[in-house]
Design a protein around this nucleic acid. Structure first.
Lengths: 202, 202
DNA sequence: GGTAACCTGAACATCATTGTTTGAGTAGTC
DNA sequence: GACTACTCAAACAATGATGTTCAGGTTACC
């Protein structure tokens, strides 16, 4: 046989623990990027040594957490249909991007010191590409303003999302209200200035 | 004489050093909230012991830095005339808020663990109040949309500003372009939907 | 039910940072 | 030009985090 032998199957409690550790790390690092290994182990309900049994070091753990977060993000964003009516896909992409961001907010700050700029960039670009493609579609249809750069509009898109996450953390906004107000805010950024979107004007 | 005697005047090099330390801390902490005392001293061109001669501990230093930042912010924002035409004062407050934020961005993250929530809130509310008062004025004049809450609009205001700061750091935007694009972006957020601001419509 | 895989707390070495002390040197101030 | 406030590097103790080792104790699995 080739050397792809998966080194035996892991024991059930081992995979369960490893999973719990990643989950705990996801939770804690999203709240505080500097959370200690001890704290993560504690939240995972596991000894500190066990944690180091599964992950060589902090970098290793953060990498795994980052990967899981990105997988979830991808799954969420891939579900959006880009080909439908532009305003609809915008709304959908806002909502799913929102859900993603709301969860894995500060996580990137934890990952930043460990992953290379290229790695982060690569993982960050995939979701961005989906947003940009919707922006481009809207532009080509003439329903989005073009006097602001695509880059800037995409940045604002994420800024507004981040803002909503922060407002929720500060308890000045709840998730239901956020889901409602976000699309109309983003829409305001994209509508051409001084022109109603309603065709009845002309 | 009463006991308000200012314990002799400090020597010139002492005040110069203290000043340099605050400046260095302002710079370094804005870039990295976890910057070490050693690094700050080095940037200030001063021995670590000298730093501790002027500031009892980290908390003391961060407090002084925070205060200086807030003073500058206040001075900058107080220069804006609120009573003029609303769109103009909006533009001016965008630009000065922008200048403030661009400089003292991550600083709040450094101050957060040391200052009480109330202190931060108090210092944060002053600039916010100016923004809100312009928003209220625009609403009462019927030129700003009212279907989004004041709180949310203010949050978006700062989110867009933060976004511009981040874009500049990433070198996807320069300061000149930022000063130009920010007002029109903020304006887009505030204009009532589906209605041109131009009165010629009706 | 036996075996190996896995978990555990306790203890340890290492490292970075904070904050302090000392003792001697330097430079403002009068 | 002398006094003294101030500065400095080096060395110190204290803390807290990381990562490792060890010597049992469980528990999944066949």
């Amino acid at each position: 046989m080739p050397e792809v032998q998966k080194e035996r199957t892991k024991r059930a409690d081992a995979v369960r623990n490893k999973d719990a550790i990643i989950d705990a790390a996801l939770t804690r690092l999203s709240d505080n990027p500097g959370a200690s290994m001890a704290e993560i182990a504690r939240v995972a309900g596991v000894g500190r040594v066990t944690l180091y049994g599964h992950f060589a070091d902090r970098k290793d753990l953060v990498g795994a957490v980052f990967e899981r977060a990105m997988d979830r993000a991808e799954a969420e964003l891939a579900a959006v249909d880009i080909e439908q009516d532009t305003w609809n896909s915008l709304q959908e992409i806002v909502q799913s991007s929102w859900r993603v961001l709301h969860q894995f907010n500060a996580l990137l700050a934890a990952a930043e010191p460990y992953l290379s700029a290229d790695q982060i960039r690569a993982h960050h670009d995939k979701p961005l590409a989906r947003v940009v493609s919707v922006l481009e579609k809207g532009r080509s249809e003439g329903i989005f303003r073009t006097d602001h750069s695509l880059t800037w509009q995409a940045a604002c898109f994420y800024a507004i999302l981040h803002s909503a996450a922060a407002e929720i953390r500060a308890e000045r906004l709840d998730e239901v209200a956020a889901a409602k107000i976000l699309p109309s805010t983003i829409r305001a950024l994209l509508v051409p200035p001084d022109l109603p979107t309603d065709k009845s004007l002309h």
